[in-house]
Design a protein around this nucleic acid. Sequence first.
DNA 1: CCCGGCGTTTGATCCACGTCAACCCGCTTG
DNA 2: CAAGCGGGTTGACGTGGATCAAACGCCGGG
Lengths: 247, 247
Amino acid sequence: MSTKDATTSLAFEVVKTACSNCNLRELCLPIGLDADDLRKVDELVSTRRRLKRGDYLYRAGQGFESIYAVRSGFFKTDVLIEDGRDQVTGFQMTGELLGLDGISSEIHTCNAIALEDSEVCAIPFSHLEGLSRQIHTLQHHFHQVMSREIVRDHGVMMLLGTMRAEERLAAFLLNLSQRFKARGYSPAEFNLRMSRDEIGSYLGLKLETVSRAFSRFQDEGLLSVHQRKIRILNTAGLKKLMSHQRA
Amino acid sequence: MSTKDATTSLAFEVVKTACSNCNLRELCLPIGLDADDLRKVDELVSTRRRLKRGDYLYRAGQGFESIYAVRSGFFKTDVLIEDGRDQVTGFQMTGELLGLDGISSEIHTCNAIALEDSEVCAIPFSHLEGLSRQIHTLQHHFHQVMSREIVRDHGVMMLLGTMRAEERLAAFLLNLSQRFKARGYSPAEFNLRMSRDEIGSYLGLKLETVSRAFSRFQDEGLLSVHQRKIRILNTAGLKKLMSHQRA
DNA sequence: CCCGGCGTTTGATCCACGTCAACCCGCTTG
DNA sequence: CAAGCGGGTTGACGTGGATCAAACGCCGGG
């Protein structure tokens, strides 16, 4: 829990539930909405929900009716199959959307769990569909968001299908770094919100392998690692490693 | 090339480009459109494109303007990264959509390649957005299709992240089987349109591993395999194998 | 009918990662 | 302050699938 995070969530305490004065606007919404449209969007986002670390935002099997925008905090989504195996399918941070998987069958297909105290905006999906019939740019923006999710998943498939352990971890860290950067945080230094086990699950590796890869990165001077505190020392090195042909 | 396929594509030669009398309607379109809406949809699907085996429907990097519905034939999509590695991200058959990845950035992010002589309907995306602003059910149907793609990708991530070789192949075959069945073909006997190498790429395995798994399945009496002709002899056995706890 | 090529099969060996196990560290609790 | 505990690290060893290599079978062409 860095100081920065603390002040950020403190700031959120006082803002009202209104997209029009939300400082995540540029992440969530299409640019260039006029005042009238913005007012409509404000009405769309009806409720906010506050979750404590470990709380479920929704569970696989539950009925779907809203998607959620992360206002503050950090989430993971995971799916599990009958025989007990499970897999983390993604980590979501401020400004990212959760619940798109539920649209297809009106039932959530994964669990969404807060990895730290968090806050989300619930967006009733039928309202969103209604409003996006009125506002072209909102409609298009939403389609882009869904499409981006598909592209992201392809990236993960690529990672799982063709990369070796160290490449996967490098790709993961660079991705996180970039997302923190996009939110105004340091791209070089950040706290992991998830355990080694959760990283491993996401990357298709065992926690021991993740741990070893961290150690090796540190030995090679690419990273400094203290528990979940990461400092990237050599971004170029990580990138090179990530796209390195297997010998 | 089974007889069935030949007659099917022959039948397509004579139908006009009109969704209203397309026998894929129930796959592509929401049910319950009235005559007026159907006419509008007919106008939406402006052009058809015929491809020969090996032809690219689109390439990564090309500008995006349409999504495509497979009318007949069989496709694969693949992504490749700078260092030469690539991965098949999916196989698409009759009634399935291609190109959703291009919406996010207006640029295609993968290649789509015909694995046999095929035919597609091009659906200009801006037209689709326009029409789905008018027809609620079309809008919702489209959202469901995108969401289903996300769910499907999660399934593949699960497969790549947690399953071993034989489980992956079993899951793959059962999935194909079901999709053939849904299209009125035999779920037990079908021709693979893709090489062992392409299967391997999709499943995150080498072709030798795929081949060995096929052989083992045959030894165990689960399958009969002759080149690309597959006959499933024991569906239950495959299912059991697929969800088998690792020892 | 023979030839050449490509996709596939099969065998032998190797190695990256999984597994199992011990231990450590920082934190909480009595 | 000791005990307990969950998460993380590290080491020794096992193994599933990759790699390397050879041979096969189908198929089209001369």
